[in-house]
């Protein structure tokens, strides 16, 4: 029954910023319905990895394969060349939710969510509107449709941002620390929204420092260090019985102040 071919396959992915080699060879298969939590110290390249997957950053070398198609074409020095027209549809299939929300401040919540269907998928206005309202209802914000981002709380903003990503029917959702810029009392509502998406069986990759959340939601946990995947496994394996010393230290540090 299960699709044997991974939806997303990353091979020997590397990325440097100048002399700073951030990713040094990442191999990763993502199957449909998988929910992968990515952990790692600050600066370990978690964001860079996610951003390479939807080409917010262009990978330095290695391959990214979406649904059996290797993206880009070979270029000099082991790198691959990517053309913008090829990447635009890929980004439509891979949604992203940012730490800073990045809502469009000059559009209402509804406008933000409609924008993709309307402008990118060229849906008729009425249809895009219905679709956007449905997505807002899914994240519990139907009554905020006409509010501008400036009048929404952080948690509400992030839920609108999630609705905006969902409105494009992405096959994979990338979350980069979706709750890190929220006040503690607002974290719950956003995690709740993500959890309900998990129950729908959506494929997602999630960078988070909420270990408890990762434990309950993820099907697999990766620990990134020095630009590589140092350890991976089920949440029980990685979070409860980490094999590597650095993973252990990281998890211990994240539980220090927990009551």
């Amino acid at each position: 029954m299960e699709d044997p071919r991974p939806l997303l396959r990353v091979g020997a992915l590397a990325k440097s910023f100048g002399a700073n080699a951030v990713l040094r060879g990442i191999d990763l298969d993502v199957r449909r319905g998988e929910r992968i939590a990515i952990l790692g110290a600050s600066g370990s390249g978690k964001s860079t990895l996610l951003r390479c997957l939807n080409f917010m950053e262009i990978p330095g070398s290695g391959t990214i394969e979406l649904d059996g198609v290797v993206l880009g074409r070979p270029a000099a020095g082991g790198a691959r060349a990517y053309r913008e027209p090829e990447l635009v549809p890929v980004r439509q299939r891979i949604g992203m939710v940012f730490q800073q929300f990045n809502l469009f401040p000059h559009m209402t919540a509804l406008g933000n969510v409609m924008e993709g269907p309307r402008v990118v998928r060229r849906m008729p206005a009425a249809e895009a509107r219905d679709r956007a309202l449905a997505e807002l209802a899914r994240v519990g914000l139907a009554e905020k449709a006409d509010a501008y981002p400036a009048h929404l709380s952080g948690g509400q903003k992030q839920r609108v941002a999630i609705a905006r990503a969902l409105a494009m029917d992405p096959e994979v959702l990338l979350f980069d620390e979706p709750t890190s810029s929220l006040d503690p009392e607002l974290v719950g509502e956003v995690l709740g929204t993500i959890q309900s998406l998990a129950r729908e069986g959506r494929t997602m990759l999630l960078v988070t420092h909420e270990l408890g959340f990762a434990y309950h939601v993820a099907t697999r946990v990766l620990f990134l260090a020095d630009g590589r995947i140092l350890e991976q496994g089920t949440p029980d394996e990685v979070l409860k019985a980490p094999r590597m010393e650095r993973t252990r230290a990281f998890i211990a540090r994240h539980q220090e102040f927990r009551l």
């Binding site: 635009v88 992203m96 990118v120 494009m168």
Partner: peptide, 12 residues
């Protein structure tokens, strides 16, 4: 971030 959010929903 505004550019990125726009491109992340597939805008050219």
């Amino acid at each position: 971030g505004q550019w990125e959010a726009a491109r992340a929903i597939g805008m050219t």
